[in-house]
Structure formats: structure tokens, C-alpha cells
Design a protein around this nucleic acid. Structure first.
Length: 271
DNA sequence: AGAGGTACCTGGCAGC
DNA sequence: TGCTGCCAGGTACCTC
């Protein structure tokens, strides 16, 4: 599920309800996520006030005075704000209890997500320190992409999905952005012109912005903090559309496997 | 250093 | 109906 637009949609949905709010504690029903949820989470959070909520790549950082709550949604995670008497279901692993009879609930059927407590400053934590460019920031340009590709021969789609190069672009938006940029997903990064890199940077940014405007993509699990699903899946050009017509040239969309992930593209307009 | 594969986990679906 | 196998939005970690 959650790529940058979904994580950012979650963040924006939480900010008005959480910032300035005090936490009472936490209930960890199942600590077995990607890494164990800290056993002392409730003690660490009790009495702390949320100062801000930030996003770095697909990680969310809930800032407190004494540290940061790091959340990753993995493949199937979601955060929701619900009343504190809402019954917990099978995959509701953690509740962060807020003042005022509400909880921030982490639900994650596949448990690839994470919830960790990071001492300040969070940016130095090993999970965040090596992350690549934020695609919605000004420093994300075709020139920088070209520079980062120097000496590499990997296929451009896998390059785009490498979080040490660019953050936030997962399997859906990589296919969609390459279609928008008219670049073949198998093309080696050693054989991409500067003009094409510039097109690609713009395409990544536009794809993510459009998805964000639509509240992200919901294929199965994703919902914003208020429970509403995303709508961008209705606007896919290639993802999941094998055999259907390309929106630009009507050629049938093709599906291939790249590094054990599905890739969708138009064989006519992507070169 | 870069590239490729594996592992983690549950649920839904197609096919038999 | 029930079983098996495959697929799914991510990414750290391992080996070559």
C-alpha cells in the first residue's frame, strides 16, 4: 500500500488532531512487527505532548520533547484516530492513547510495518540517515538523478524504487511515473539522456502530487486517518491495467516481472 | 560498490 | 467445499 502519497495523506490527516495533544500511554497488543515494538513504549509516551508530525520518505515521525515515535506502514499498515472504546480487531496491534477519549490505532495485517521510539535527533537514526532525495522538494532534479546514476547499470524502474536514491516511490508510482515520462522500465540508467532524466524528475513529482490530491491509492487496506479510502486507483494509466489500452496511444498495456515485482508499461510510447 | 535474491506475514483469489 | 500455489502497496540484510 503505502507509498509517499498515502503516508503524506495519513500525516496531513493526523496533524490537526494530534499536534498539541497530550498522550496518556500506549497499549501494545502485538509487538511483533518488523522490529519489536518497545516494551516500555507506554512509559516513554505517558504525559508527552505531540509537537509536530513529519514525514521522511515513507516514515512518519511524531515528535515529542524527549524523542520521536517512528512509524512505518509497511505493505498493509494504516493509522486511524478512533474513540477509545472502539473494539480492537485482530490486526489492531498498537493504540497510542490520547487525552480526550481517543486513540491513534496502528492496524497492519501483514506486520511489515514498524513502530519505534527514537531518541533525538531522529535524523541520525540508522533507518533515516541513508535515505535519498525527497521527490517533492526542489533539490529533486533531473541533473541530480543523472549524477546519482553515474557508474550504475540497473534498470531505471529499480533505480527509482531504491530509497537510497529517491524516497517514497514504490511499485505503483514507479510504473506510473515512467509511463508519464515515456521511458521504458527496463532501460538501463547508463543509457538515459539528460533530457529524459529531466522528464522523469518532473513525471515523478507530478504523479505523486496528483495521487496526493486524490488522497492516495487504495487497493485493499489503505485508509486515511479518518477512515476514508484513496481515489487515485481510478486514475491509473498503467498499473494493474495489463491488456487494457494505453491512455495516450491505445496500445495494449504489458506486464512484466522485474526483481520479483510486477511492472506495467506501454510498449509503444515508452522507449 | 553495485546488484540480486531472501526473508518477514496475512489474506484473497484462481485453479483443481 | 477445500486444498494448493501464487500474488500483493516495503525494505533490511545477506551474498556474490
Amino acid at each position: 500500500m503505502p507509498e509517499l502519497p498515502e503516508v503524506e495523506t495519513t500525516r496531513r490527516g493526523l496533524v490537526p488532531h494530534l499536534v498539541g495533544r497530550r498522550v496518556r500511554g500506549a497499549v501494545v497488543r502485538n509487538p511483533n512487527l518488523r522490529w519489536p515494538v518497545p516494551a516500555d513504549l507506554s512509559r516513554r509516551l505517558a504525559g508527552e505532548e505531540v509537537r509536530d508530525i513529519r514525514r521522511r520518505g515513507k516514515y512518519l515521525l511524531i515528535d515529542f520533547k524527549r524523542g520521536h515515535l517512528l512509524v512505518h506502514l509497511g505493505m498493509s499498515g494504516r493509522l486511524s484516530l478512533v474513540a477509545d472504546d472502539t473494539p480492537a480487531l485482530r490486526h489492531d496491534h498498537v493504540d497510542v492513547e490520547l487525552e480526550g477519549h481517543q486513540v491513534l490505532r496502528l492496524t497492519d495485517p501483514r506486520r511489515f510495518g514498524a513502530m519505534l521510539w527514537l531518541p533525538a535527533p531522529a535524523e541520525e537514526h540508522v533507518l533515516l540517515a541513508g535515505l535519498g532525495l525527497e521527490p517533492l522538494e526542489l533539490a529533486f532534479t533531473g541533473e541530480v538523478l543523472r549524477d546519482r546514476a553515474r557508474g550504475r547499470r540497473i534498470a531505471v524502474k529499480q533505480f527509482l524504487m531504491n530509497g537510497r536514491i529517491v524516497v517514497g516511490v514504490g511499485n505503483i508510482y514507479a510504473s506510473e511515473a515512467l509511463w508519464r515520462a515515456k521511458i521504458h522500465p527496463l532501460r538501463s540508467v547508463s543509457r538515459i539522456s539528460l533530457a529524459a532524466w529531466i522528464r522523469l524528475a518532473a513525471a515523478v513529482r507530478e504523479t505523486l502530487e496528483h495521487a496526493l490530491s486524490a488522497g492516495g491509492t487504495t487497493l485493499r487496506d489503505f485508509a486515511a486517518a479518518d477512515g476514508r479510502p484513496g481515489r487515485y486507483q481510478k486514475r491509473f494509466s498503467v498499473y494493474g491495467r495489463e491488456g487494457k489500452p494505453c491512455p495516450r496511444c491505445a496500445t495494449k498495456i504489458r506486464a512484466i516481472r522485474q526483481g520479483q515485482r510486477s511492472t506495467f508499461f506501454c510498449p509503444r510510447c515508452q522507449r
